[in-house]
Write a protein that binds this DNA or RNA. Structure first.
Lengths: 351, 351
DNA sequence: TTGTAGGCGTTATCAT
DNA sequence: ATGATAACGCCTACAA
C-alpha cells in the first residue's frame, strides 16, 4: 500500500484538524489560502494519496465508469473503447472495461458485477433482450451505444443513413440486385439496418435487396456469407460490418471471383483494416471514437444533470468510396445518348 | 445505487447478527449450514450486494486490477487486453484499462492514478525509463509485459527466438541482405530484437542486416520505413511488428515494387490482419492472449505467494510462413549439382 | 456457533 | 475559517 499515510498524518504535520485537510483538498475555497498551502505542502511531503474506498464509502461515488463491449479484438469496439477511455480520464474517471465475448449470459453477469462499483455504465452494442436490459439498468446510471430503449440515454449512429448511402452508391453504379449479409440477430443495429433497407428501397426503383441471413460479425462470418451472396446472383454485397466484408472479399478471392469486376462489396464502419486489403474496401464510415466520447459526455450529464436532457440523436456517417465497388458487368442498359458517346467501354459493351 | 440494502438488512430478515451475515458470505464454514442457507436466501431476496468501498476500507483489498497499454487500437494490445480481461474476471477481479497513447507522461500519470485503487497492476510494453518504472512500481504489486526489470515480475515473449526464426527463414530462402525496420526507441522489445539480430548473425554466415531506424509501430510507420528499406538494396525487410509490415506492403505496392518477387516482407506478432492482405504476411506468431492470461496468473501469485516465485520465462513463438516471402531474385548462386538438375527455374537463371 | 464492540479513512454536520 | 464528532458499510477480534 502506497497510502499508509492518512489525512490525520497530514493534519498533524500541518498543525490543523483532519476536517481542514479534507476541505483543503476538495472545496479549496473554504479554507484560508495560507493554511491551504501549508496543507498541500504537507500532503506533498508525505506523499499522501486519498483512500478511494473510504471516500467512496461516505460520498457514495467512486469516480469510476464501467464499459461492457462484445469483443475487444473487434477493431470497432477497440476504437470505441479508446474514445471512452480518453474522455473519461480527462474528466477524472477511471474505466473498467469488460469483454462479454458476444455472450449474453456473461454480458449480464458483467453488468451486475460492475454496476455496484461504478458511478455510471456504458453498454456498447448489448446483445441482451430489452427486458433484461431494462431490468439490469434499473438503478444504475447507464448510457447505451448502438441501442435504443425508452428512458435510457443512448448514443447511436444513423443506421438508416448508412444503408441509404451504401445502397444509393451501388444503385448509382447500376446495381439492381444486392445481397445483405446481416449481423447477429440480437444486434439492435442490424435490426435498424434491415429496417433502413426497406426505407431506402422506396427511393430506389427497380432495386432488389436479398437478405441472406445472420452471421457472426467477424471475418469468419463474412467467409460463410460469401457463398450465399454469390448463390443469389446479386451483383453486389452489403455487409453488416467491415470485418464481415473483409471475410467476404477473402472468400470471393479464394473462389476466383474478382472484386469488383464480378461482384462489388461494401462494408460498414471504416475500421483501419479496410484500407489494408486490395481492392480497398468501400465502406460507410462511422465516427468510432466519437461514439465513445459522446457516451461519456452523456454519462456525465446524467450524473450532473445541469442541462435538460437532450433528445437522443444519431451521429452522422459518411460513405467512403474505394475500389471494392464498380459498375456491375450486368449494368443496366445505358441510355441511347450515352451509347452514342465516344467512350470505348461503352462500345465494347456491344460485343 | 442498487445497493441501498446492507448486511444489517439481511441480518434482520434472517434473524441473525450482522457479523454472522458477513461470515456466511465469506468464511462460509464458520457458520451452521441451516443459518447459512437462511442468510443466503435473505440476501438473495433483498438483492443484497456487498459494498466494495466498505469492504475495501477494512480489508485493504479492492479485487480490482489495472492494465496500462500504449494503444488499444493496436490489435496486439487489444488481444493482450482481452486475455487479461478474461482471466482476471474468472478469478473475480475487475480490470481498469488505461490507454497511454504511446505517451510516456500520460503513462506515468495513469499508473499513479490507478495504483491507489487496485490490488495489482499490469504494465504492457511500458515506454518509460527504467528509473521511472522502478520508482513507480515501488509499493504496488506489478507485472510487466514485454519488459524486464530486476525484482519485478514480468512476462515476455522470446524476442531472440523471434529474430532467429525470421532471419533463419529468409536466410534459408537465399536472402543475404535484410533491412530491419525498428520500433520505438523506448521499446524494450525492440532493444531485445536488435540484440537478437547480432546473436543470430553468428549462425548465419554471409548475412547482412541493415537497421534502417526507429518508427512508430503502426501502419504509417511502416509506410515511412518502406522507402528506406528499398534504398538499402536489401532483398527483404523484417519489421518490428505486423502493423508496420502491413504499412511496408502497402507502400511497396504503391511504388510498384512486387512482393515477394522484388522484396520479401516479414512481420512479427501474427495479428488477425496479417491474413487479410495479399500477399498474406509471413510473420512470427506471439501468443497474444496467453501473454495476458500469464500476466494475471503472475499477479495473483504475487498477491498470494503460495508458491516460490518462478524465474521469468519467455513465452514461445512460432514462424508462420505465408506468401509475402520467397526466394529473392538475386538468389545466392546454386551449387553446380543443383544447376545440373532438371528444374526449369534453375535453367532460367542462366539467362 | 453466534453476538458485541470497535475501527478502517474519509466527508458532512454542527458548533465555535 | 476551523475543529469536534458522527457516520458511511463492513470485517475481525473477542466474548459468550
Amino acid at each position: 500500500m502506497a497510502g499508509a499515510v492518512t489525512v490525520r498524518d497530514v493534519a498533524r504535520l500541518a498543525s490543523v484538524s483532519a476536517s481542514t485537510v479534507s476541505r483543503a483538498l476538495s472545496a479549496s475555497d473554504l479554507v484560508a489560502p495560507v493554511t491551504r498551502q501549508r496543507i498541500l505542502d504537507a500532503a506533498q511531503q508525505l506523499g499522501y494519496t486519498p483512500n478511494n474506498s473510504a471516500r467512496g464509502l461516505i460520498t457514495g461515488r467512486t469516480n469510476n465508469f464501467g464499459l461492457v463491449v462484445p469483443d475487444l479484438e473487434n477493431p470497432y469496439f477497440a476504437s470505441v473503447t479508446k474514445g471512452v477511455q480518453g474522455r473519461a480520464l480527462r474528466e477524472g474517471y477511471a474505466v473498467f472495461v469488460a469483454d462479454s465475448d458476444e455472450d449474453i449470459r456473461s454480458e449480464i453477469e458483467l453488468v451486475r458485477k460492475l454496476a455496484s462499483q461504478v458511478d455510471g455504465l456504458i453498454l456498447c452494442s448489448p446483445r441482451m433482450s430489452d427486458e433484461e436490459l431494462a431490468d439490469i439498468t434499473e438503478g444504475t446510471t447507464t448510457v447505451l451505444i448502438n441501442r435504443r430503449l425508452p428512458d435510457v440515454e443512448s448514443i447511436t449512429v444513423d443506421d438508416t443513413e448508412i444503408v441509404r448511402q451504401a445502397l444509393g452508391h451501388l444503385y448509382a453504379l447500376g446495381h439492381r440486385s444486392v445481397a445483405y449479409a446481416g449481423g447477429p440477430a440480437t444486434s439492435w443495429s442490424d435490426g435498424q439496418r434491415r429496417h433502413g433497407i426497406h426505407t431506402a428501397l422506396a427511393d430506389l426503383p427497380g432495386l432488389e435487396v436479398i437478405e441472406i441471413g445472420s452471421f457472426t460479425p467477424v471475418f469468419g462470418g463474412g467467409q460463410s456469407a460469401a457463398d450465399l451472396a454469390v448463390a443469389t446472383g446479386a451483383s453486389a454485397v452489403l455487409a453488416y460490418n467491415d470485418l464481415m466484408a473483409l471475410g467476404i472479399l477473402s472468400r470471393l478471392q479464394a473462389r476466383g471471383i474478382q472484386v469488383p469486376r464480378d461482384m462489388s462489396v461494401v462494408g460498414i464502419d471504416d475500421v483501419n483494416a479496410a484500407t489494408l486489403v486490395s481492392p480497398a474496401l468501400t465502406t460507410v464510415r462511422a465516427p468510432l471514437r466519437k461514439v465513445g466520447t459522446a457516451a461519456v459526455n452523456a454519462l456525465i450529464d446524467g450524473i450532473h444533470p445541469e442541462n435538460p436532457r437532450l433528445e437522443p440523436e444519431a451521429l452522422p456517417v459518411q460513405l467512403i468510396v474505394r475500389s471494392s465497388t464498380s459498375v456491375p458487368r450486368s449494368a443496366v442498359p445505358l441510355t441511347s445518348r450515352e451509347e452514342a458517346g465516344p467512350n470505348e467501354r461503352s462500345s465494347n459493351a456491344h460485343h
